[in-house]
């Protein structure tokens, strides 16, 4: 599947007023209201046909808030980032390689647990994450209560509750985006911990890999992928344009420390 990650990295890296232009990726499970949040925030300022109601093509839109300009990218809905489908690959590659300034993960308040699965995985790639607990109105109707403040504390990243269809909570969502970019919010993301044996392997691989990896990539996450034998990630890193490490060496190192 062709992945167009260049479009945005160029627009962010080469644009003269980068200071004031921020890319927000919109991730989440299918049907959690990503497109609704997207439409609410960008209004009519969007292009590319978001054809199938279930987003297949990446859609982009823009909005401004408190003098910052945002480009919002609606990613396909996925349950995980393990690239078993092209959708997941698009989402993962965008979050990992296009390095949006903030990844906004939209969650369904009525079944938060399965959504947290994705949030935790995204936190392994980047810590610039904002959680948006959407569909609060549906949750209330079903007698489900979500403690947003507690969620933020548990995850160590900001969280906002919304009901995107009626627009509820979107102002504070934008305010939190702004605060995050202004560095006003302390972020201490919860890290996934695996069983001791896995942790030992991960650490071993990570140590060997780290010197060869570009600084912007989370080496622990790469180590995990390698542990799972998802070697495609290494090729992706090698092929990525602002990479500067010797690919052959990288692969040899990897081979040596697999469990």
């Amino acid at each position: 599947m062709a992945i167009n990650t260049t479009l945005l990295s160029e627009s962010t890296e080469n644009s003269p007023d980068k200071q004031n232009n921020f890319v927000i990726a919109l991730a989440g499970n299918p049907n959690v209201g990503k497109s609704t949040v997207f439409n609410r925030l960008t209004g009519l300022k969007q292009h590319t046909g978001n054809w199938p109601g279930k987003t297949v093509i990446k859609a982009e839109g823009t909005f401004s808030h408190r003098n910052r300009h945002y480009t919002l990218v609606d990613l396909p809905g996925t349950y995980s980032l393990h690239t078993s489908s092209s959708d997941e690959e698009v989402a993962r590659d965008f979050i990992c390689f296009s390095r949006p300034d903030i990844t906004l993960v939209v969650c369904d308040a009525t079944c938060l647990e399965r959504n947290l699965n994705l949030v935790l995985q995204i936190l392994e790639i980047t810590d610039r994450v904002l959680v948006c607990v959407n569909l609060l109105d549906e949750a209330e109707r079903k007698g489900i209560h979500v403690d947003i403040a507690m969620l933020a504390r548990q995850l160590g990243i900001p969280a906002v509750g919304t009901a995107a269809r009626s627009g509820r909570g979107l102002e504070s969502l934008k305010n939190v985006l702004d605060d995050m970019l202004a560095g006003k919010i302390a972020i201490r993301p919860r890290q996934l911990v695996y069983d001791p044996e896995l942790e030992r392997s991960i650490n071993k691989i990570e140590k060997r890999l780290a010197p060869y990896l570009p600084a912007w990539i989370n080496s622990r996450w790469v180590a995990l992928r390698v542990l799972e034998r998802d070697f495609s990630i290494l090729e992706h890193i090698s092929n990525h344009k602002n990479n500067d490490f010797p690919r052959q060496v990288l692969k040899e190192e990897v081979a040596l420390c697999l469990p």
Partner: peptide, 11 residues
């Protein structure tokens, strides 16, 4: 294989 992973991901 891959499908196992997809099932796991679904919960």
């Amino acid at each position: 294989g891959n499908n196992r992973r997809r099932l796991l991901d679904l919960g």
